[in-house]
Design a protein around this nucleic acid. Sequence first.
DNA 1: GAGTTTGAAACT
DNA 2: CAGTTTCAAACTC
Length: 783
Amino acid sequence: MDTPKKATQMATPLSKFEDSPVFNYINSLSPIKPVKSLPVTQTFNSLNFSSPPSIFTSPHISAHKETRFLRRNNCLGLSKPEFSSENGNKICRNDGVANDASQLYDNSAELQENFDPRVSMEEVSVEASNDSKFAIELPQALKYDCGSPGCDSNPCNIESNCMTEMASTSVSVVQFVQEASENGASEADVRLQRTCQMEQKNEVTGCEWESLISDAADLLIFNLPNDSEDFKGLMQKSLDSGGRYASVTPRYINGQPIMEMIDPVGTDHQNGMEHQSTQPGETSILNDELDECFTGDPSENGVTAMGMSNPASCKPISNLHRGMLRRCLDFELVTRRKNADGSSNYGSSVILHSDEKFASEDKQLVPLKPGSDSPRCMVPGIGLHLNALAITPQENKNIGIESLSSVRQISLPGANASFHSPENCEDPHHEPLTSASTERDIVAVENGVLLAEDASQTSAYLAEEEYNQNSPKKKRRRMENAGENESCKRCNCKKSKCLKLYCECFAAGVYCIEPCSCQDCFNKPIHEDTVLATRKQIESRNPLAFAPKVIRSSDSLPEVGEDTSKTPASARHKRGCNCKKSSCLKKYCECYQGGVGCSINCRCEGCKNTFGRKDGSSSTDPEAEPEDEEMEMCEKSGVDKRFQKTEFLSNEEQNPGSALPTTPLRLSRPLVQLPFSTKCKPPRSLLSIGSSSGFFTGHNYGKPNILRSQPKFEKSLQTAPEDEMPEILRGNCTPCSGIKTSSPNSKRVSPPHTILGSSPSRRSGRKLILQSIPSFPSLTPKH
DNA sequence: GAGTTTGAAACT
DNA sequence: CAGTTTCAAACTC
């Protein structure tokens, strides 16, 4: 039914594409048929930055990423919307929300055009296959992505539905979805199933898919708890599809693989070999992103993906999951919490969002990678937001081991970690209570919308998480300290039961995990209620209790004028310190610890804060005082400070504006994470952040990296000559700014400084995020 | 690793 | 709001 239409539609678009020089170029490049499709995709891209086109658009990695994000978001949104509402249109819209695609969706004609290219792609690849496949093909492709990991027929259907929706055929899609949900007998479904089966044969596993499949109908329904799982599946699917799309297009361009990907079934026709490679690649796309984060080399992604063989397919899937998980960590945590032990429900939906955001924004998700990094570190270090990240590592491990099936587990451990699962501590990750909660809230409340809102939001969520972590300087410290070794280590509370701000974990909004040496700890998922209640109490007393302590002076702080000059980062400690003996030259001083200069708010005595004295001497003016000592301190802390500052800044950016106690975290997280994403690589503590940061682009990268590195740097710096340190610090400043900018919503949106600082635009973005995001992670998580 | 120092958080 | 106590991190040895 739809297929014929599509075919017709396709024809038009194809012609257009063919006309385009790009198309011709592509054709010339790739002997494979797909070439046509490629050009088309590109054209689409140019035409619409939106998701569908983007998916196909191979062109730029970034574009892909974006597309991924968009798509993911779309998918998510779609899935949710679909579930929530049966209207395909709505779904499309939701998808479109994140991306321009929405417009496309809105306009059937546009959609068709966009789709057409895809279809054309499919056709090309599938040509042998029936026209009807076109419509199906897209879905298949999507499925492919999802399915590659191991899709079940059902999942495929779902995916296909999503894809179709995503693609364009809102109506047809809807029908498909409905059919799938209802009967799953639609032709498209059948084909999809076939494709999925094919894929399954080729690739292995799709453990999650199984669940997804089983839940396909449910997914449509999407109920909260269980939905989470479904959501995950959906999200994953969507994500996968999205990611694949993006990746696919390029691949197509590069070679047939893409085509294959698109047409699992048809692809076989073309080249089994390619298929494998492509599939892996596709699946790997997301993985690649993740991997990129891990490896830090986006460029390699493609290679890795390609390199991945069938066996890899499984891995890729796992990777995908990782990405999903990572991104979703927070959400998962939340969901897990909700579900409590019921591991079954993941906050998948939420997670997906987060993941999507991360992935989308950053393909770099690297943060995810963090997982790859040392899981431990990730978990512990990350803290909340970070936690998620931290968790991710574990997740990654789990994922790797468990594979798709493990997804739940992974998600649980990783994302939820914080939420943890049932096992409080065991969950290694603390999870950012807040983040989890926030995620949940978001998911539950905003659902598709939030998701759709986009990566930016997701980033925001992440930022929140980060915030949580960041806000607690301590966490960073831990992270840093633990950094490499102790990453896992957290608190050592003995009397506070980890339910007071004395506890870094609690203060950070994360659950205590194994690394913690706390006694009688109640800051565990098991005691979620208690934790939340306590948090509320504390917040009731001091709404900003969980807000980041360091704020960007420029933005929120009134102090700004003064401090800005003082503090390198232009960040200040909200309350200021009361140091009397440390001269604000040790970490006892929160200002120093935070890498910010002391401000008017400080009541410190004998302030020698290298970052900026209360008097006005700026950190930049270290000479003023004991430079030597300070320098050293600075260096050590300097690095940290940088991080902290950057983080703080980001936080502040988020928070400051927020200044709102509750919300801040979320914001901060996203920001922080973004920067981190770039870091992906090594920084443990930051890992989480890094993962999030992945979104950010260049600027962010630098910052994130720095942040991550901090811990290491600190150590190294400590040992290193002072001179170097100062430089670093100096460098940090810029990085920080960059980070700031990037951090908030996502790199894209904001320009660095302006955004961070006071720039309204930035705020607006953040605000949006904040709004969408539940207030503090900690509180929300539970209920 | 144990003990001390420090300053924030919590309490009054 | 100020003073005191409690607490855990930071620091030192």
